[in-house]
Design a protein around this nucleic acid. Structure first.
Lengths: 231, 231
DNA sequence: GTTGACTGTTACTAGCCGTAACGTTACGGT
DNA sequence: ACCGTAACGTTACGGCTAGTAACAGTCAAC
């Protein structure tokens, strides 16, 4: 967001680009070194994630490095930046989440409403599976605008939802100009409700999902089941 | 959230309590000193708010103090803490917002749907009026659990919304157990959509509000206007 | 075997929150 | 009129965090 953040990001990206270029000269098949490095990166990533689970969302880079049995500068060499580390974690999170999402959305034959339920279910499932990590990505995602940050993921999901909603609006012969805004709202709805729920667990997950789907499908009007008022 | 934050908060509150006690001994009417101090506090608050508007949500305490033409320690004497300053700002914000909200909700005779529109309108209006301040309160509110922090305000609003929704659900003979979750979701919906809109302004505010109210009132099902599918 | 890149270290800078220690001004009770 | 005290205000510092030298060992690649 701020010019400062942009400068940092560019710095990190330039460094990573330099490393890539260095290897590109010896292009073709990747040497043993590359795979070693990649492996190491994964190990450090695992350790960092564990560190966050253990020490909470405000875990310092020192702590995260110590969790891997190493010191800060190595972490920086691998991820360039705290934001870089966040990106890497977010990427992993996103890959898994999106795999689940396309699985949920892959069933073509089912009813639209079931589709909605499955999508919500997948998302909430991911919040539930690793709340600490999820919160970390949320809290750290504020400054980031990268495509792989959690905010970026939510952005992508929002765009997809916007497409669906827009289509549905057009099919119904209505103005679809609000689709984007609505999509953001819906995603935020699910995210916030899930966030709240995961801290209290006042009901089983299935029921949470049902409540949300019921509401999103029917709205206030449907809840009041007297569907004939207009402004 | 973290034990550390709690300790800090308690420390600040103790200090403020001490000051209050000191004055309580000489109780009764407040001396000139008190009003002077209160006035000064307001001035510093104004300056801090201006500083945030000018330097963005990550403005440092130094900057905020400089904005008032003073140095950090005075700011700390008045607000104890960064969180204390945030609280003070949030309190002001909340007072004004709640004034607008009760004004919007005060009209008893109107239709429920109009009530919804007015509430959303009031909220979005507040985001629009001072986006920088709004973002500051959001970004800073994460650690705070105070009753006057923005998250606290949203919490209160959510509780009120939950009451309304719960009533509406019971009136319709439905299970009202989801009211709380739904309320959080609805508030997040409005907040997120407003947040997104204020950065792009792709439509006039009235239209944004209409879109949101339409959706929240009718839901997906209403948008598709074929109201007879169930899970 | 030499080179170069990677692993790893310690020790530093810079910026932030928050505080201690100190001087100055002016209200308020006597 | 006068002292105590509580405010205003300063500079200088401690502690923590992100991020960065600068340096030493190790091991694949030619």
């Amino acid at each position: 967001m701020t010019p400062d953040d942009v400068r940092r990001r560019e710095h990190r990206e330039r460094r990573e680009a330099e490393r890539a270029a260095r290897h590109a000269t010896r292009a073709g098949r990747h040497s043993e070194r590359d795979t070693q490095r990649a492996d190491r990166r994964e190990v450090l990533l695992d350790a960092a994630i564990n560190g966050i689970r253990k020490h909470g969302q405000s875990a310092s880079m020192d702590v995260l490095a110590a969790e891997a049995g190493i010191t800060k500068p190595i972490l920086y060499r691998h991820f360039g930046d705290r934001a870089g580390l966040v990106d890497a974690i977010a990427e992993r999170f996103a890959d898994a989440l999106q795999a689940d999402l396309v699985a949920a959305l892959g069933q073509k034959a089912v009813h639209n409403r079931t589709l909605l339920v499955n999508t919500i279910e997948a998302f909430v499932g991911y919040i539930e599976k690793d709340p600490a990590l999820y919160r970390f990505l949320i809290s750290e995602g504020g400054t980031e605008t990268s495509a792989v940050s959690l905010t970026g993921i939510l952005e992508q999901i929002s765009n997809n939802v916007a497409l669906v909603i827009g289509q549905q609006m057009r099919d119904a012969g209505r103005d679809s100009g609000g689709a984007e805004v609505i999509a953001r709202g819906v995603v935020a709805f699910v995210y916030a409700a899930g966030d709240w729920w995961v801290d209290r667990r006042t009901m089983p997950r299935d029921q949470l999902v049902t409540y949300m789907a019921d509401f999103l499908w029917s709205g206030f009007d449907g809840q009041a089941n007297e569907g004939t008022n207009q402004s």
